Simulated assay, not measured.
Amino acid sequence: MMKILVVSDSHGNKEILNELASRYLNKVDHFVHCGDSELSSDDLIWGVMSTVRGNCDYDYQFPEALRFQAGNLNVLVVHGHHHSVRSSVAGLKREAEQAGAVLVFYGHTHIVKAEQEDGIIFINPGSISQPRGTLMEKTYCVATVEGQTLTVAYYNERHQKMPGMEKQFQIF
C-alpha cells in the first residue's frame, strides 16, 4: 500500500503545511504540493514536501512539473495554469501521455476534482486556504494505492474526512 498526501494553493499559509507535515509524518509515503504556496524555495517545508511552481509563485527555483514513481505508478505533478485546467483536462492528458504518467495531481482551480479519462487519473485536492466552487471548504486529499485500486479521500483543514467525497479508481 502507498499513500500520497496532496495539497495545493496554500497561498502563504505556512502553518497549515507544517501542520500537515507533522500530522502525517511516517503515515504517508509522499507529500506533494501542487503550487501556489507563495513560499521561498529555501523554506524548510520543502525538505518534507515536493512542489511545483504555480502562477503565484515568484521563486523560479521551483520546477514547472514534477515526475516521480509511486510504487509502480508514474506520477506527474503540475500546477495546471499552463494546461487550461479551468475548461478541461485535455492539456494535462497530453502531458501525462508524453510522460507516461497514469496519475496526475494538479491545482490552480481551487476546486476539488477527481476523474479518470483513458486510464489516466486526474486529481485536484482543492485549495487549503482559498476554496472556490460550490463546496467552499478548505481541503487536501490523501490518495491511497492498494493493488490495482486508487482511493482518494478528501479532508478539511480540521483534518476531518469529508463525507461522501471518497472516490475509487481502477488502475490500468
Rank of each mutant, 00 (worst) to 15 (best):
I121S: 09
I121H: 11
F122K: 10
F122T: 09
F122P: 12
F122N: 08
F122L: 07
I123E: 07
I123L: 13
I123R: 01
I123F: 05
N124G: 08
P125M: 02
G126E: 01
G126N: 03
G126F: 00
S127M: 02
S127K: 00
I128T: 03
I128V: 03
I128N: 01
I128P: 01
I128L: 07
I128M: 06
S129N: 00
S129L: 07
Q130S: 01
P131E: 08
P131R: 05
P131Q: 05
P131F: 11
R132L: 01
G133P: 01
G133I: 00
T134F: 13
T134P: 10
T134V: 14
L135C: 10
L135W: 02
L135S: 04
M136L: 13
E137Q: 13
E137S: 12
E137W: 04
E137I: 15
E137G: 07
K138P: 04
K138V: 03
K138M: 07
K138G: 05
K138Q: 02
K138E: 15
K138C: 07
T139M: 12
T139H: 09
T139C: 08
T139Q: 11
Y140P: 08
Y140V: 10
Y140W: 13
C141Q: 14
C141L: 15
C141G: 14
C141T: 09
C141W: 04
C141R: 06
V142T: 11
A143H: 14
A143S: 15
A143D: 13
A143W: 11
A143T: 15
A143G: 15
T144Y: 08
T144C: 08
T144S: 14
T144E: 15
T144I: 07
V145D: 01
V145N: 05
V145S: 04
E146M: 05
G147V: 05
G147R: 04
G147E: 06
T149H: 07
T149Y: 05
T149E: 10
L150F: 01
L150I: 04
L150K: 05
T151A: 00
T151H: 11
V152Y: 07
V152W: 10
V152F: 02
V152Q: 12
V152L: 08
V152R: 02
V152E: 09
A153R: 02
Y154R: 05
Y154T: 09
Y154S: 10
Y155F: 14
Y155K: 10
Y155L: 08
Y155N: 06
Y155V: 14
Y155M: 10
N156P: 08
N156K: 04
N156I: 03
N156S: 04
